[in-house]
Simulated scan of single mutants.
Amino acid sequence: MKSSTRGTLAAVITCVAAAAGAATATPAAALGAVPVPVPLEGVENSLHVGLPKLGAELPVPMAGAPEGPRYAEGRLLPERVLPQLPVDGGLPGVHLRAPLPHVLGDGFDHAGVDTPASDLRTLAPGLSLDAPLTAPEADTLGLPVPGLPRAGLLAPALRTTPGANLAAGPGR
């Protein structure tokens, strides 16, 4: 077999292997949130005490596609010169479960706080401008009429619904 044929065959096999590996792997961006465990078992075993179980979820922000400019009748420039950029992400979540030495009574062995990761949708600020000239009009023989320039700021938006659970009960 020629060396060029072997090189082509090696390149094809490499591409197939990379595609197969990419198909089986799940990227962190597809998950929405990345779990972050805090390993405290080693300290717990070495000190022989009950330590809290702690973990977190960190969201992965994803930028969306901005709305394109909208052309309006009677304006020379589009309505949104600088469009708002949507960014979807989330608020981080925390899971904490701590042992209690029967402080609240015999039936309470642990206290826990659970704040799951919640969706967060934002829109970046945008800008709307209008030129100091009007659109050409038939009354002025197709010439634009001077006017006052107009500028507007499109306000940013933030939407989320956070939640939390606090629990105390039996069990470790």
Rank of each mutant, 00 (worst) to 15 (best):
K2P: 00
S3Y: 06
S4N: 10
T5R: 08
T5H: 11
R6K: 14
R6P: 01
T8S: 10
A11T: 06
A11P: 05
A17E: 01
A17K: 09
A18P: 01
A18E: 02
A19E: 06
A22I: 10
A22C: 10
T24W: 10
A25H: 14
T26L: 13
P27K: 11
P27R: 11
A30Q: 10
A30C: 02
L31M: 09
L31Y: 01
L31T: 12
L31G: 04
P39N: 13
P39I: 00
L40Y: 10
V43E: 04
V43Q: 05
E44F: 00
S46G: 03
L47N: 00
L47P: 02
V49W: 08
L51M: 11
P52H: 08
L54R: 09
G55K: 00
P59S: 14
V60A: 04
V60I: 05
P61D: 01
P61K: 05
M62V: 10
A63H: 04
A63I: 11
A63M: 11
P66R: 13
P66H: 03
P66W: 11
E67P: 07
G68K: 09
G68D: 02
R70M: 09
Y71R: 08
Y71D: 07
A72V: 12
A72M: 10
E73C: 11
G74H: 00
G74C: 00
L76H: 03
L77Q: 04
R80N: 15
L82N: 01
P86H: 08
V87Y: 02
G90Q: 00
L96G: 06
L96R: 03
R97L: 13
R97K: 11
L100D: 08
L100G: 03
P101R: 15
P101T: 06
H102F: 10
H102Y: 15
V103H: 02
V103Q: 05
L104R: 03
G105R: 06
D106H: 06
G107K: 12
F108G: 01
H110K: 13
H110L: 12
A111F: 12
G112K: 02
G112E: 12
V113K: 06
V113H: 06
P116Q: 04
P116H: 02
D119N: 14
A124E: 14
L127D: 07
S128N: 09
L129D: 02
D130I: 02
P132L: 02
A138L: 15
A138T: 15
L143C: 11
P144V: 06
V145R: 09
G147C: 15
G152L: 02
L153K: 09
L154V: 15
L154H: 13
A155K: 15
A155P: 04
P156S: 14
P156E: 08
A157E: 15
R159M: 05
R159F: 14
T161R: 09
G163C: 13
A164C: 13
A164L: 09
N165C: 13
L166G: 14
L166I: 11
A168G: 01
P170H: 08
P170Y: 04
G171L: 09
G171N: 07
